[in-house]
Design a protein around this nucleic acid. Structure first.
Lengths: 114, 114
DNA sequence: ATTTAATTTATAGCCTGTCTATAATTAAAG
DNA sequence: CTTTAATTATAGACAGGCTATAAATTAAAT
């Protein structure tokens, strides 16, 4: 089916990011790729949504960002590596419970086939 | 669990309304009640979201609104009754497919327990 | 060396839909 | 009459995802 984007993602982007970091620290564009792959290509977070979301998460203490060492020889600007904090892990599990609740309520309300 | 509101509803309100009309025509505040009941009390659509959404749906030809006859003796302003159009029924079934797709993709991406 | 191209972060400003808050309409109740 | 209840209506706030572009940094190409 088609791309999932815009309104439908509102309120879920931060959870997707937290979830993508569960397998280990990562930088911006790789987070986007992880989410895209985890979502079978249907989720393509835009940079203009990603970075502000990362800053919100960092401000909230849910992720911690550090600059990658400049010993890494590759093209491009320095990367900022993000990892889940303990608080972030807690929030992730809470967000998953909320997601499951959301889905069950919406399934009822939309008359979805059991 | 708590109330589902705001961002999480974005992109789903119109589907909820269409779904609530499947059991027969209804007016604004009764639509709100139907959705609330269908969602076990967790979905309380606000009037400031409802009416604009109804107008969008009507503009799109997905619902048809008519004024209730003034032979009805009751308090309050005249009610506008909305019913699903054929086009609206089609859209509803499409929206349900999209909802199921959305849920399955998000479940994958959020690492939700199968 | 200088220029070009690639990778990544950064950010300004748009856009849309939900929300808060309030008003307007209508008729029953007191 | 005046008040209260029920309903529709709408202006404006706000948030966050989006488009578009710029800036930083370094390898590769010439």
């Amino acid at each position: 089916m088609q791309e999932i984007t815009g309104d439908k993602l509102r309120g879920h982007v931060e959870t997707l990011i937290l979830s993508s970091l569960e397998t280990g620290e990562s930088h911006g564009l790789e987070i986007v790729k992880r989410i895209e792959e985890a979502g079978s290509g249907a989720l393509r977070l835009k940079e203009g949504s990603l970075y502000p979301a990362l800053y919100r998460l960092e401000d909230a203490g849910l992720v911690k960002g550090t600059w990658e060492g400049d010993d890494t020889r590759r093209r491009g600007a320095r990367r900022r590596l993000y990892r889940l904090t303990r608080k972030g892990k807690g929030r992730l599990s809470q967000a998953r419970q909320e997601w499951n609740y959301f889905v069950s309520i919406m399934n009822q309300a939309m008359g979805a086939p059991a």
